[in-house]
Design a protein around this nucleic acid. Structure first.
Lengths: 212, 212
DNA sequence: CACCAATGTCAACACCTGTACACAAAGTTA
DNA sequence: TAACTTTGTGTACAGGTGTTGACATTGGTG
């Protein structure tokens, strides 16, 4: 709630709220977990007294959910941009992977957070993330349905293919996050493998026959 | 260390060590995390005073590493059994998935632990898990190399295909763990989707040409 | 300006944590 | 049995935790 800040007008509100979110993101990198963070630690990092935390979030879970929201909002924005640009058809896979890798690097902290909390977070956070991924997969499925050679594929199988793609992009994401930021060689290698994997998937999809 | 217990002969040793491991596994289900567990909590659940913990593990991380070891040891055993049986060729994918799903269910707590700690665990635990998965993937790659229609595929591409398969088995695992144990219908659905995904992958692999 | 709600601060609470140390019980070996 | 090593217990400490309530400051609105 209160994302737009149209009702609360105190400029401090937005600032320390941001400070809390950023503090949490930074600490997730240092500590192992979001769950491992304490309210006091986050408040300290944000340069604010513990009790001030409650002015912005009822508890840590609420802050976590805000981070989930933020993470996927920007990701959806990327998807929208890619769709708008359209596909250069030939190297669509290669350029998509390149774009995505760069995007992951640019938003590393958010992706780090999501990757970590996806399975080990609190139950509300986990379901929020799963819901977002489900949605993302469905959108991809409808994108796939527009590809000519997939016209005859059943809705269920499109969903199956989409989740196949999402799984492997997810895996790529987590591998990218696991290598040091300056290791461009390893990054390029991972990207190349991911490209091949996508190409193989589409190769299989092209000769796929949905059962009635 | 001391896995076989050949040097230490006190029968209590093995028992409370097991109790600690089991306590941790149970608590990982209830709490969100292994990192979220405290030494005292685990000791309490194991029916032992906190300081007794140190008789078996120097710290929580050591206990976690023991759990990683345990988890993958049993998984490797499964793989060995499957390999020994050989492949009935025709429904190899279907039966493999069935076997695997049952196995995940039977060892749910270990898989749960691995899934959660894979990204959010402490650094030593994360690298231990990653190492095991890497090994697992390589073994699968050599298995793939024995398939006739993959004879011409380069080593790098075999590795690429193996990781594709592992990624999707991983994803299947995590989805299985996320549904209630009694929901056999959803379980069957997930298995069916996973089968299709594997079939699609092999379809793509069959027409894959490695570049020189 | 004065008012008022929003935001931030301070002090205090009851509780949980990891770990050190000295000691008791149990099991093995001579 | 007696000597020993291993395993488990009890106590204690210093420090971190979430949340409380009363208070101070700030900033927009009349």
């Amino acid at each position: 709630m209160d994302q737009t800040g149209e009702t609360r007008r105190d400029p401090r509100r937005g600032r320390t709220r941001r400070a809390l979110l950023d503090a949490a993101l930074e600490l997730v990198e240092k500590k192992d977990n979001f769950t491992a963070l304490s309210l006091r630690l986050v408040a300290r990092k944000a340069g604010v007294v513990p009790t001030a935390f409650y002015r912005h979030f009822p508890d840590m879970d609420a802050l976590g959910l805000a981070l989930v929201d933020e993470s996927f909002r920007t990701l959806r924005q990327l998807m929208r941009d890619v769709r708008a640009v359209g596909l250069p058809q030939k190297q669509v896979i290669s350029t998509s992977v390149q774009t995505y890798v760069r995007y992951v690097r640019d938003n590393a902290r958010h992706f780090q957070f999501v990757a970590k909390e996806r399975f080990s977070g609190s139950q509300p956070i986990r379901t929020a993330i799963r819901q977002e991924i489900r949605l993302f997969t469905s959108e991809l499925a409808t994108d796939l349905s527009r590809i000519p050679f997939l016209a005859k594929v059943s809705a269920e199988d499109l969903q199956m293919m989409a989740s196949l793609v999402v799984n492997n992009m997810t895996s790529l994401t987590e591998q990218i996050l696991d290598i040091p930021v300056d290791d461009r060689a390893e990054e390029a290698f991972l990207a190349r493998v991911a490209e091949k994997q996508l190409r193989l998937i589409f190769l299989g999809a092209a000769s796929w026959r949905s059962q009635p």
